[in-house]
Amino acid sequence: MTATDRPLRASDAPSAEPRSEGASLSPDDAFHVLRPFRRRETIRYLLDADDVVKMGDVADHVAAREHETSVADLTPTQRQRVYIPLYQSHLPKLDEAGVIEYDKPRGIVRSTDRLELFRPYLEAATTTLPKRASERAIVAEDGRFR
């Protein structure tokens, strides 16, 4: 069994203490972080997840939402097209913003105290920037974007 196949443990967390850099977040900073669909979906997933998650699980969730399908029905190409930008760009940016702790070599993501600051923005949203210029966002009855 490899490190990515075994269940996550608390000791897998990138650090023992979660960051709580800046208890507040300006609306401009929040909207900047939330602008890309993939970051919004990453934050949404992490708000509902346990403390430590595998990066691949985050990528699967985001890819399924982006392609409006289930994780089980994702193609390898759909997974890879989301996994790579998350791995190289979006997760490092969320880490730099203090929203998550991202252990890139181990593929582990841990929420920080700042993550919870995004919940009101995601819950209050009734519209969002489209995933692509040609698409319109649809908000389900539970307030989640489809």
Rank of each mutant, 00 (worst) to 15 (best):
12 D>N: 06
84 I>N: 01
28 D>W: 06
69 T>M: 13
23 A>F: 08
31 F>K: 06
13 A>L: 06
37 F>A: 07
39 R>H: 12
75 T>H: 09
92 P>G: 04
51 D>T: 11
87 Y>L: 08
91 L>M: 11
66 E>R: 15
91 L>C: 09
24 S>K: 02
64 A>D: 10
72 A>G: 11
31 F>I: 02
84 I>K: 03
43 I>E: 08
12 D>A: 04
60 D>P: 05
42 T>Y: 08
42 T>P: 14
73 D>M: 13
40 R>W: 12
67 H>Q: 14
81 R>L: 12
13 A>S: 11
61 H>K: 11
71 V>M: 07
26 S>A: 11
60 D>W: 13
62 V>N: 13
63 A>W: 04
36 P>V: 01
52 V>F: 05
53 V>K: 08
72 A>Y: 14
39 R>W: 12
53 V>F: 04
81 R>F: 08
16 A>Y: 02
26 S>C: 05
38 R>M: 10
54 K>V: 02
20 S>G: 11
42 T>H: 04
85 P>I: 00
42 T>L: 01
78 Q>C: 07
81 R>T: 14
12 D>L: 05
77 T>W: 01
62 V>H: 13
52 V>K: 00
80 Q>L: 09
59 A>Y: 10
74 L>I: 00
33 V>W: 05
43 I>G: 01
78 Q>R: 03
75 T>L: 10
43 I>L: 06
14 P>E: 03
83 Y>Q: 04
69 T>E: 14
59 A>Q: 09
49 A>Y: 02
50 D>S: 15
87 Y>W: 10
14 P>T: 00
37 F>K: 02
20 S>Q: 08
70 S>I: 00
49 A>T: 09
67 H>N: 15
33 V>I: 15
70 S>D: 14
29 D>A: 13
78 Q>S: 04
24 S>G: 03
52 V>G: 05
70 S>V: 01
44 R>H: 14
83 Y>E: 04
47 L>S: 03
41 E>P: 14
21 E>T: 03
45 Y>E: 13
18 P>R: 06
13 A>N: 04
53 V>R: 10
44 R>I: 08
38 R>S: 12
47 L>W: 06
84 I>C: 00
49 A>C: 10
61 H>D: 14
14 P>A: 02
55 M>G: 04
48 D>V: 03
30 A>S: 09
33 V>S: 04
54 K>F: 06
39 R>T: 13
80 Q>D: 07
26 S>E: 12
32 H>S: 15
82 V>D: 01
52 V>Q: 00
57 D>S: 15
91 L>V: 13
69 T>S: 14
51 D>V: 07
13 A>Y: 05
